[in-house]
């Protein structure tokens, strides 16, 4: 199988590199040596059964989970180093959660401006200007003053994307961004993600949306029992899978 980025969208510059990543929760080894490189502008989709370690792998990249062993670099800087400034680093790694996790006491605008003001240090006007721009990109400029509870799940997740994108990260991590949504709301979120990709953002996406993986991914990574079983183009992995394990998975996903 090929480890090369499959499309021209991806340049040779590596944004994320993961080497020998291991993670144990107590006795349970969830990641058993993962190696992955993601080029600038590349969209990598990680698929696999639940419990295969996809989310944990993603969460190690910004150290929401503490890796047990291995090296992770983002933009050439070591994430796993002992003296790394985690807050500075996380600013450059956007994350979108399955549970969305908007701040319920803040409006859509307030959700997006918070880090711009308190992390980047922008003034009120500048932060709001920037936040409105990013809400517009996700099609929610008109909802800037709405509270999360007043938005649909799909709208909430789009605010979640705007919140992360506003910091102009080097890479966006999507952790099952549509899994908690009603089926009819999934499309609007996926559309925003396609748009994010078209804007040249480097993306790592954990998802069960096979259509998204087939249509949007530059590369698909199949994880199984805490390791990468195969990676390649969507064609290679999802349409003509070589492994029986993956064939079974793809079959189940279609049903």
């Amino acid at each position: 199988m090929s480890a090369q980025p499959a499309t021209t969208a991806a340049s040779s510059e590596t944004i994320v590199s993961i080497e020998g990543l291991r993670k144990s929760f107590g006795e349970v080894e969830v990641l058993r040596g993962v190696d992955l490189r993601v080029g600038k502008g590349e969209a990598v989709v990680i698929v696999g059964s639940s419990g295969s370690g996809k989310s944990t792998c993603l969460r190690c990249i910004n150290r929401l989970e503490e890796p047990t062993a291995g090296t992770i670099r983002v933009g050439g800087q070591e994430v796993t180093g002992p003296k790394v400034d985690l807050n500075l680093l996380r600013r450059r790694i956007g994350m979108v959660f399955q549970g969305i996790h908007l701040y319920p006491h803040k409006t859509a605008l307030g959700n997006v401006t918070l880090a711009l003001r308190k992390v980047v240090g922008l003034g009120k006007d500048e932060a709001e200007h920037k936040a409105r721009h990013h809400l517009e990109v996700v099609g929610l400029a008109h909802k800037a003053d709405s509270y999360p509870a007043e938005l649909s799940g799909g709208q909430q997740q789009r605010v979640g994307i705007a919140r992360a994108m506003a910091l102009e990260p080097q890479v966006m991590l999507f952790d099952e961004p549509t899994s908690a949504l009603d089926p009819e709301l999934v499309g609007e979120v996926l559309n925003v993600m396609v748009r994010t990709k078209e804007m040249g953002m480097t993306m790592i996406v954990v998802t069960h949306e096979m259509k998204f993986a087939r249509d949007v991914a530059d590369r698909v990574v199949f994880m199984d029992h805490g390791a990468i079983l195969a990676e390649g183009t969507p064609q290679e992995i999802l349409i003509n899978p070589q492994h029986q394990r993956i064939r079974d998975f793809v079959m189940r996903s279609h049903s």
Binding site: R90, M95, F97, L114
Partner: peptide, 14 residues
Amino acid sequence: SKGQWEAGRSTGLS
């Protein structure tokens, strides 16, 4: 919820 912490920390808030 723990997710509120994670959301905040993921944007670089201490």
